[in-house]
Nucleic acid binder design. Structure first.
Lengths: 208, 208
DNA sequence: CCAGTTCTGTATCGTTCGGTGCAGAACGAT
DNA sequence: ATCGTTCTGCACCGAACGATACAGAACTGG
């Protein structure tokens, strides 16, 4: 019985996400959001309650549609060293591709740096997503360890370092997208160098 | 013959820096800056021309008084693997110390993520400072390489990864200061593991 | 067709924003 | 002491901010 919405929520959120990504939270005005979404304030407030509500929707969508897909292959149960390296090289390629158009890093990393100190919701979301990445990376390293691809323990330590390096690359993207891409590729190279390098693999390769 | 300024410029900039560091650029209002510095707008505008002028002064001071000193030991000519590890552990210790009070990362990293896309001056400054870190880290690795402490090439690649990991830790500081500290310590551990690990050091230790 | 609800556009709310004008106080040079 | 300059506090500017009120259009269920 209610009049149905005449616009697509997802499309609007995607447009809003784009603006928040490019300009950050504080510097994005309602006028910007109206222009980007093609909706007026009434519709935005009807759908999202507040600027912050729209921001939350944008972050959720970003995590679901941009961040999570990139992580998918790494989170698959069989992922090992090769998948971790591929994840990092994929990141590098994506940054390299975006180098021409101004690179704007990662929306969530940007938001964490800007507003997480006074936005508990974002802090929570950001922390949980970082943990998800951390777990995916550590999982791949554990798998590699179990397979004998690498031998030293230090899996969690290395996972933390690699995850942080990616975050650093995403900040660097604002300054120099090519350098940011190199960071990812260098990290991939380092990860690949762990293959049997340190610790003189005990039992040799288990696979034929 | 002019009436001399009755306040200390450095003290005022330091106070302003503190606010920008904590709240970011956009979210910091002139009222905030008046309160933090104890000065009123007229004096601020007289001394710094604009909010952005004060921000620039704050960034300059931050780089000189907060960031650069931390880098000093690493930039000294004799710095090698031990100094790099010490730099990283120092960062970790500092993050751990700030964990109780809310951690706010690095002012410049925050600013890069927030406004560098539309602030060419900051982008320039940020890039040049990142290069300085990069050079310091690479220099230490080169020294270590020359001394035979490590053997694989890949010095530049590793320098980029380490620098990025530190930047990632500084973003992480907003979410979980202890985790951020661990990242630095883990990276230090990884750096230390490069000592003679990969490539079977050729000539043994040159020092007695 | 009607009743009931929701959507959407305009117009506007009060607040806060960065920035200025101005008058008088405070100082150094002479 | 006087002049010239600068500093400092207060009031205030127009613009932009996020958010809302309200009226009329649009739609569904009956």
């Amino acid at each position: 019985m209610p009049r149905p919405r005449t616009f697509d929520l997802d499309v609007a959120v995607r447009a809003a996400c784009d603006v928040f990504w490019r300009r950050g939270y504080e510097a994005t005005s309602l006028a910007d959001l109206e222009q980007a979404t093609g909706l007026n304030r009434s519709s935005l407030y009807q759908a999202f309650d507040s600027k912050h509500g729209l921001f939350q929707a944008a972050v959720r969508q970003y995590l679901d549609e941009v961040a999570a897909p990139r992580l998918a292959a790494l989170e698959s149960p069989g992922a090992g060293l090769a998948e971790l390296a591929a994840y990092l090289r994929g990141f590098g390629a994506s940054l390299r591709a975006g180098a021409a158009a101004g690179s704007r890093g990662c929306m969530v990393v940007n938001a964490i740096a800007e507003v997480s100190d006074r936005d508990a919701w974002l802090r929570e979301r950001g922390a949980s997503y970082q943990n998800r990445i951390l777990e995916a990376v550590a999982g791949a390293l554990r798998t590699a360890d179990r397979r004998g691809e690498i031998t030293t323990g230090r899996v969690d330590q290395r996972a933390r370092m690699v995850t942080a390096a990616v975050m650093g690359a995403l900040v660097t993207a604002h300054l120099d997208a090519v350098l940011a891409a190199e960071i990812c590729e260098d990290t991939a190279g380092e990860v690949e160098s762990w293959r049997g390098s340190a610790g003189h693999r005990p039992g040799g390769d288990l696979r034929p």
